[in-house]
Design a binder for these strands. Structure first.
Length: 418
RNA sequence: GGGAGAGUGUCCCGAGCGGCAAAGGGGGCGGACUGUAAAUCCGCUGGCUACGCCUUCGUAGGUUCGAGUCCUACCUCUCCCA
């Protein structure tokens, strides 16, 4: 592939499909080719984990580091007190300081798996914008920073258009979010010489605000880079699964489910995802992508295993692959399927099938479980059952000492007496 | 402060003469077909100890045999006037 840029950094991003917009491509390219730059991505602390959408930008930081630059992962401890209104049609719930702190602790773990933190020139650093935002003095801040923001212009951003068009309230609190994010950028420049902020395409307006603020305050030239919004070829947004968001935290979303999520990638997206989410070389990806027809399933397995390895570790990835292979291909029992423990006395007395399905997390309520049974989706030990009043007793135990429950072709769980 | 409108099934959009568990979409889930894909077709999409019972239409009261629907107050939002 012909190199479009002078810097390794931008070339890698370009070739792997990470670039949506860059504020000044030539300027940034020249800088990155010449010296070690510091760039950052900001992350919300509104949940206990980050999700797949965030994984792209963490990967962005990974490639930044790989190509000889210094990444900063910014925790939004201060901005999460306000809540980003971008492209949202309602106000976020306000979080308490404690919740935010807990979330940050939980989120941190994921990053250290992907980025190399330390003190060296290209070691990643983690910062929390609460460190400077919470100390700000209101009037002082308005005079120093607020004066450079035009309300007319802020109202023209696409990110708030949704709210304004729907005639829904955009509180002053939220309106300040973009000012704070803009200020973050200049503050990170002052503290660490950060010259580049990256993020999803929805962050473009917010990032540009920082670039402009730096100008107006007489600061250095800053740059913005955004990644495309991830959508599946069929048009859906990526990152949602049956059970909600695809979290990177294994307690919220198991490695097995994570692997399955990527295993079920649509054909048309396989190569795109390989480039963005894995670290395989472009040559390897080209080879894998040449697989056609049902062989593309092999490509999906590689994709699933590689991404799972990055997020959950190689062992967990191999385990998930093995479990999947046994369950789906060999049709055999694999004891690493998600397992729910039941008290053996309870089993001896007999557990209702519907109840068991709910306990195993395969149905949200008895009613839903009943409907699944009635539509012929439920199997016990791989045999379809049609009686929703069936009772499971010790007789249903397989030689391995568990009962296998399935809803549909893809959802399996084990019931294990203890 | 004055005036006009809006809030519906806790995923979203959106109908709703006083008899409503509430039309119709989207999304999601399940089935068929496949390759754990897409597209297509079919079914399901409040809860329960289930021929019955319970909880739902911004909140709290009221009228009525009966209220999402009528009345009152309140909350939130939007627009116009001051």
């Amino acid at each position: 592939m012909a190199a479009k840029y002078k810097s390794d950094f931008l070339n890698v991003l370009e070739q792997r499909g990470f670039i949506h917009q860059i504020s000044d491509p030539e300027g940034l390219d020249a800088l990155a080719a010449k010296e070690t730059i510091t760039a950052y991505v900001g992350y919300d602390a509104t949940a206990t984990s980050i999700h797949i959408g965030n994984l792209i930008t963490v990967t962005l930081l990974y490639w930044l580091q790989e190509t000889g630059h210094r990444p900063i992962s910014l925790m939004g401890g201060g901005t999460s007190m306000v809540g980003d209104p971008s492209f949202r049609d309602d106000q976020r719930k306000l979080l308490t300081v404690e919740q935010i702190a807990t979330n940050i602790e939980s989120i941190k773990k994921v990053y250290s798996r992907i980025l190399r933190y330390g003190e060296g020139p290209t070691d990643a650093i983690m910062v929390n914008n609460a460190d400077w935002l919470l100390k700000l003095n209101y009037v002082e801040f308005l005079r120093d920073v607020g004066r450079y923001f035009s309300v007319n212009r802020m109202l023209s951003f696409d990110s708030v258009k949704l709210r304004l068009d729907r005639e829904q309230s955009l509180s002053f609190l939220e309106f300040n979010y973009m000012i704070m994010q803009g200020y973050d950028f200049t503050e990170l420049n002052r503290r660490y010489g950060t010259v580049l902020q990256m993020g999803g395409s929805d962050q473009w307006g917010n990032i540009i605000n920082g670039v402009e603020l730096s100008h107006k305050m007489g600061g250095p030239q800053l740059y913005a880079l955004t990644t495309p919004l991830l959508t599946k070829s069929s048009g859906e947004k990526m990152g949602k699964s049956a059970s909600g968001a695809v979290w990177l935290n294994g307690e919220l979303f198991s490695p097995y489910d994570f692997w399955q999520y990527f295993r079920n990638t649509e054909d048309a997206d396989v190569v795109k995802w390989l480039r963005i989410f894995t670290r395989l070389s472009l040559d390897e990806i080209a080879k894998i992508g040449a697989l056609g027809g049902s062989e593309i399933n092999e490509a999906k397995k590689i994709l699933a295993t590689e991404v799972t390895a990055i997020v959950h570790g190689r062992d967990a990835a191999e385990q998930a692959a093995t479990t999947a292979s046994a369950t789906f291909e060999a049709g055999s029992l694999d004891l690493s399927l998600p397992t729910t423990e039941v008290w053996k006395g309870e089993l001896a007395a007999g557990i209702g099938l519907l109840n068991a399905l709910v306990q195993a997390g395969l149905a949200g309520s008895n009613g839903e479980a009943r409907r699944h049974v009635q539509s012929g989706a439920v199997r016990v030990n791989d045999d379809v059952v049609s009686d929703d009043r069936l009772t499971l007793g010790t007789a249903a135990l397989l030689p391995e000492g568990v009962i296998k429950l399935s809803v549909g072709k893809k959802k399996h769980a084990l019931l294990k007496p203890v």
